[in-house]
Structures are given as C-alpha cells and as structure tokens.
C-alpha cells in the first residue's frame, strides 16, 4: 500500500504525543469547530513518544508548509513528573531556536519570531502541574459519569490489587470494555463517538487556551 506521509496543511498546528492523543484532539477540534469555525484552522499532528519530540521538531521545521505555520501547540503527558515534562518540552523547543524562557509554564504562550508557541501538560489543562496522562483526563471527563462511577467502583479494587504499571490506562480501558458502545475502542475512536464530555469545565479550559493561541497567531 502506498505511504501517505503527513503534511503540514494548516497554519495552526497541535503537536500531540502519540496517535491516541492526536485522534482525541481531532475529535475535540471537530466538536469545537462545529460551534466556532476558527477551530477548523487547527491541524493535529503526531510527534511520537515523549522522547521523540526533540527529534521530531527539527524535521517539522524543514517540512513544506512550515513557512505558513503561525502557531504551534504541544500537548504531552506529564507521566511521572509534570515538572520534568515541562522542562523537556522547553528544551526541545529551544534546541531548534524558539527561545522559550526556561521558567515558562504550561498554558502560557510565547512569541518566537513570527510564530507563537505554547504547550499543555496533561492531565491538568489549567496548570500542567499534575502527574499523570491523557487517560487520567479522559477518566475525569467521561460523558456518562454516573455509569462510569458504577463500573469503576467495581474494577478499581482489582486494578489497585494487581499493582499494574500503568493503572490509568487499565482503568480507562476497563471502563470501555464494560460498555457496549466503547468496548475495544482506542481513546481517539472513543472520543469520536462522544465517550467524553467536551463541554465540561476542564475541556473548556483547553478550548480557551486554543482560542487564545489562534488570536495570538493573528496578531
């Protein structure tokens, strides 16, 4: 099958950690775009794993279409340390000359020449200071919260007892597997079929941030 490489098609780019995050963000943008056409000016791209951003960015800036890019938003997981994640993103941006202040915080944005760059560290959209991952954010923003509570209250003791390496992933996918609608779906696929409440306060924080980035890119 012919490869269809990823191109830069729009001027506002969200670089996402992994395919799941990318497809989740695509669903978010589709939901936001239904109410506000400006969100259709965003494109989500996948930069790979947490350690691949510093290799990805030098290639990204060499791609056709980069000359038209006005805003770059990076979304990645905090994993075990939100502070390490913050520093890693800043280092990766500065290695290719974006000159982001070392004390820059998640949720802020910075002018870097002709472009505006910003980043979010999940799961905490507002401050980026909480350890965890996209799955934690997803668990907090499930659309059918009451059903989820019932299911999770049954599976959580088992997950806690097993002392799994990535319990947040296990919890979310355990929830999916105990529903008819979301069983066997990945995060991005579940997002596309409205597994998550995109109108909840936390997601609205994300919407505000992306809206501010768009405005900053126009100035």
């Amino acid at each position: 099958m012919a490869i269809k490489p990823e191109e830069i098609k729009k001027s506002n780019i969200i670089l996402c950690e992994g395919a799941d995050c990318k497809h989740y963000v695509i669903s978010l943008l589709n939901a936001f775009g239904a109410e506000d056409e400006r969100f259709k000016e965003y494109q989500a791209m996948n930069f790979g794993g947490i350690n691949e951003l510093r290799k990805y960015l030098p290639n990204f800036v060499n791609m056709e279409g980069y000359e038209r890019v006005k805003t770059i938003t990076i979304i990645r997981d905090a994993e075990a340390s939100a502070e390490s994640a913050r520093k890693s993103v800043i280092d990766s941006l500065n290695e290719i000359g974006f000159d982001v202040p070392l004390q820059a915080k998640a949720g802020d944005f910075h002018r870097a020449g002709a472009r505006t760059v910003g980043f979010l560290i999940l799961p905490d959209i507002k401050s980026g200071s909480e350890d965890g991952t996209l799955e934690d954010l997803c668990l907090r923003t499930l659309a059918r919260a009451s059903d989820a509570d019932e299911i999770l209250s049954a599976v959580n003791p088992m997950i806690d007892r097993l002392k799994l390496k990535r319990p947040h992933k296990n919890r979310l996918h355990a929830y999916f597997s105990l529903t008819d609608e979301y069983v066997a779906l990945k995060i991005g696929e579940a997002a596309a079929v409205h597994a998550f409440d995109f109108g909840c306060p936390e997601i609205l924080e994300l919407k505000c941030f992306l809206s501010r980035m768009l405005s900053a890119g126009i100035e």
Binding site: I3, K4, P5, E6, E7, I8, N46, F47, G48, E52, K55, Y56, P58, N59, F60, N62, M63, E64
Partner: peptide
C-alpha cells in the same frame, strides 16, 4: 539521522 526519523514517522519530506 533526521531523515530516518522523518520517514519512520511518515512525515512529508518531498
């Protein structure tokens, strides 16, 4: 090295 990463990530380099 960058090209190897870009191709693995299926980025458009043409």
């Amino acid at each position: 090295e960058s090209l190897a990463f870009a191709v693995e990530a299926e980025l458009e380099v043409r």
